[in-house]
Amino acid sequence: MKKEQLLDMYYQMVLIRRVEEAAAELYQQGKIGGFLHLYIGQEAVSTGLVAARQPQDRIITAYRDHGVALNVGISARQVMAELLGKATGISKGKGGSMHMADVEKNFWGGHAIVGAHLPIAAGLALGDQYRGSDGVTICMFGDGATNIGYFHEALNLSKVWKLPVLWVCENNQYGMGTAVERASAVSEIRRKADGYAIPNMAIDGMNVMEVYETAQKALAHVRAAGPFLLEINTYRFRGHSMGDPERYRDKEEVARWQENDPIGIFRRWLLENEKASAETLDAIEARAAADTDDAIRFAETSPEPTLDELFKDIYVEANHG
């Protein structure tokens, strides 16, 4: 991989971290409403996947979507403005934290009903197959989503129709507060794909280069031969959402995972492999921090949506009561 792309990946991971740390503060100040699910700890997953995709590859994810949003190139300004519910947000302030998308960048959303976007991902992939495009749909979901019927209906159909979809289970070890082994009959999630004869693999999601390299191979497989499931093991350092008392795990467990901070791992890798100097990486971190500050200023000074927006964008054709 070119050095520029590696450094850009590093920038993206740090930017996600900074933007979300800022979002947590703004949430505490009451400036962000609703739910806020932070991606902190999982940055290597979306960063590696997005780096591995081709422009024609679609990506769709669940509600923990700020990472993908920033990876695909939605500006920190538009992400922050959406979190603050402003007219300049990527979804015009109508979606919020869980519903960011940018169709121009082939990012088909943040979806908030657990598992419900898997059938939709099958349909996105069908769209490409129908037209003879070689695009692949990357569908990310949590470990919790593998216990709901949608997962099984979607995997089954994807195999029956040989749809070009890369199923990616981000296993962060807990569905809300319930550990995988307490909710799933099979705790090695990738084995569920065996039931649908879908080839599969489990990898370390704290190492962005492992995610990137495996995703490239998996995408090539899907392009040539149909669906593949990748289980990416990771960990969220923060609660499920803001206000999670975290009674289901102890501080030692969190600390143990934090020693494997994906940003720290990648930084060390870049230094050890002489891809960048410490000064270069420091400068990237400073730029991500500055861009985050700029995004906050932009979002805070952006206008609220006007009331006439209430009845817009509901139908394509004339809006009816």
Binding site: W108, A116, L118, P119, I120, A121, A122, G123, L124, A125, L126, G127, D128, Y130, R131, G149, Y150, E153, A154, N156, L157, V160
Partner: peptide, 18 residues
């Protein structure tokens, strides 16, 4: 399709989005 209404409608939604 299989007898699986959620993925029938879900896949239709996705295909329509394309």
């Amino acid at each position: 399709t299989p007898i699986a209404e959620a993925v029938i409608v879900g896949a239709a939604i996705g295909a329509a989005m394309t």
